[in-house]
Design a protein around this nucleic acid. Structure first.
Length: 276
DNA sequence: CTCTATGTTTAATT
DNA sequence: GAATTAAACATAGA
């Protein structure tokens, strides 16, 4: 379940469950999940984490950083199918469970429970590192933290010329935008997903910022209310555009499918009109 | 069996 | 070199 809204929901859950809690045990059940990067070996989780108290859980784009009062930090990326759940303490192993923390929430009502990482497809990762990992450091600003400001978006988009759809999903430009959000936002902003990112007029950059905001709020709202997602164009190839009734079209860009309205998402150029 | 999938990285090709 | 594409990763579900 991974795009910014899902990761943000995961962050809130983890913050609620882990904030102020003491880690009793930390087990990486599937070493593959702790692969690569600047993280330490999977075995180090069990050695280092018990006794540590969680300070807070921070999100940037699709990455989560679990900060401890002292000691290293835990980084979590949900990949395509990762999720965090809470269980009874010492609960039986779950299907696709890849890691688990046994914790004690502190306070007058010290309560024990299990917080566990589930991931069928195993694209997600769980890393333990002393400092911020490269993946974290390479992230651009978060959309909910200034990333949508035209002052950032404008120059960032002007600096590249790949298709705008592709650039929006570049985590170094804007952290947290995935295929669904990019697709939806472009429809809201009436921008052709194939347009080079450096061809957008200032008004289009602003519209895109608003489009992203709309798509983000929509999805976040759906999560909060427990509603299933309702998309405007994503996954609706062949259906009529809700604005102009033209049949939505699906294309493939950078290996990902994009659905858009060929009629009202038109490519316009920023080119100055008749300079003299 | 075939196709697609909310993500990211790496190899191959242009 | 730079840019673009395809493939790979591992697995489920239609």
């Amino acid at each position: 379940m991974p795009e910014l809204p899902d990761v943000e929901m995961a962050r809130r859950d983890l913050q609620r469950w882990l904030g102020g809690a003491e880690i009793r045990s930390a087990r990486v059940l599937d070493p593959y999940i702790a692969r690569g990067g600047s993280g330490v070996s999977p075995r180090t989780f069990a050695r280092t984490l018990p006794g540590q108290v969680v300070q807070q859980v921070i999100r940037r784009g699709k990455w989560l950083r679990i900060e401890l009062r002292e000691g290293p930090r835990v980084f979590s990326h949900l990949g395509m199918t990762g999720s965090w759940i809470r269980l009874e303490a010492e609960a039986p192993a779950q299907r696709w469970e890849r890691a688990r923390f046994e914790i004690v929430s502190r306070g007058r009502s010290a309560r024990e429970s299990t917080v566990s990482y589930i991931d069928s497809r195993r694209f997600g990762r769980l890393l333990l590192a002393e400092d911020d990992i490269d993946e974290w450091r390479g992230l651009g600003p978060d959309p909910l933290d200034g990333g949508l400001e035209p002052a950032h978006l404008g120059p960032a988009l002007a600096r590249r010329r790949r298709a705008i759809k592709d650039v929006l999903m570049d985590q170094a430009v804007l952290a947290g935008i995935g295929n669904i959000l990019a697709t939806e936002a472009l429809w809201h902003a009436r921008i052709d997903p194939r347009a080079p990112s450096d061809s957008l007029a200032p008004a289009q950059v602003r519209a895109l910022g608003r489009g992203l905001r709309t798509a983000l709020d929509q999805e976040l709202g759906d999560r909060l209310r427990g509603n299933p997602d309702v998309f405007s164009v994503y996954g609706r190839e062949g259906e009529p555009c809700s604005r102009c009734k033209t049949a939505l079209v699906r294309i493939v860009q950078a290996g990902r499918s994009t659905t858009f309205c060929p009629s009202c998402q038109v490519e316009r150029h920023a080119g100055r009109q008749h300079p003299r």
